[in-house]
Amino acid sequence: MAKPALQFAQNLAHKPATAIILIAVLLGFTFIDSLDLTEEYIFGAYAKHILFISLIYSVVTLSLNFVTGYVGQTSLGHAAFFGLGGYVSALTTSLLHLPYGVAFILSGLVAALVGLPLGAPALRIKGPFLVVVTYGCGEVFKFIAINLDITGGPAGLPGLISPTLGIAFSDIGVTGKEAFIVAALILALVLAFIMYRLEDSRVGHAFAAIRQDEIAAASMGINPAYYKLMAFVFGAFFAGLAGSLFAHYMSFISPDMLSSNESIMMLTMVVIGGARSIPGAFLGAFLLTITPEFLRFVKDVFGLSYDPWLVLFGLLLVVMMRVKPQGLLGAETVFRR
C-alpha cells in the first residue's frame, strides 16, 4: 500500500504542473489577507512566518545540494555561509548605510569568496575527514562572530532594516514582510531552475562523474578540483543570499545563525528530502521547518514539560536511514536528454 502511494507522490512531485499549483497556492496564501475578504485575517503573521522560514531553508537546502548532492561531499559547515551572508548584509546596511539591494548581492559574493578557500581543503581531504573539517570551519566562524565587537558579540546585531519593496499588505504583526516571502520564493525558484538546467549540461555531467568515480572522471578530462570548488562557491553564494534575506526579515542577527546545529539541520534537510532531488529539497526544508512548530503546539496542548521535537528528530533520522536511505524523493541519476 505504502509503496504505490510513495511512487505516486514521487511522480507527482516531479511534474511541472505540481510546482505551478504549489506556487499559486503559496502566493494566494501570502496575499489573501490583503483582499480584505473577511473581518478576521485568514492566515496570521505566524503562518506567514513559517512559510518564509520554510522557503529560506529551501534555498539553503538547494544550495547545499551543490556540495552534498552533486559532487558528493558531505558538509557540516553550511550554516557558516548562511550566517556570513547575514552578517555581511547587516554590516553593509548598518555600518556603510548602503541600500539593501547592494547588501543582498554583496552577501552572496562575499560568501562565495570565502567559500573558495574553504572549498580548497575539500580537494585534498575526503569523506569523513571533510565532514569534520567543514564542521570545524563552521565552529571557528561562530567563535569569531561571538568574540568580535563589530559583529555584536554573543548578542548579535539588532535593528536591521527590513525594506518593503513596495509589497506590504497585511498590517498584523510585524508589518511589511510579504516582500521577503516573495523574494525568498523567487530566489528558491531561480535556484531550482538553475539546478534543473545545470543537471543535464556538461557541468552537471562532470558533477555526476566526480561523485561516482573521481579517478575515472579525471581520466575522462574532468578536473575534479575545478568542479568541487565550483560546487562550493555556488553553494556558498546562494546560502549567503538566503542568509541576507533571513537576517533582514528577522531584522536581527546572532551567532546562532552560524551554529553547528543549523548546519546539521541543513544537511538532514538534504538527506531526508533526497540528495539531488529539487522537489526533495523543498520537501525536506518544509517538513523539518513545520514539524517542530507543530510539535511545539502538541507540547502546549498536552502540557508536556519538554519539547519532544529533537528526540523524535534523532529517532526519525535513524529510522529513515534504515528504511529509505536515499531520502523521500531521492532517485537514480539519469541524464534527461
Binding site: 555526476a208 561516482q212 568515480d213 575515472a216 581520466s219 537514480e332 541519476t333 539519469v334 541524464f335
Partner: peptide, 11 residues
C-alpha cells in the same frame, strides 16, 4: 573497471 555505475551505458 572504473565505470560510472549509476549512469546508463549511453550516459
Amino acid at each position: 573497471i572504473r565505470l560510472f555505475p549509476e549512469l546508463s551505458v549511453r550516459d
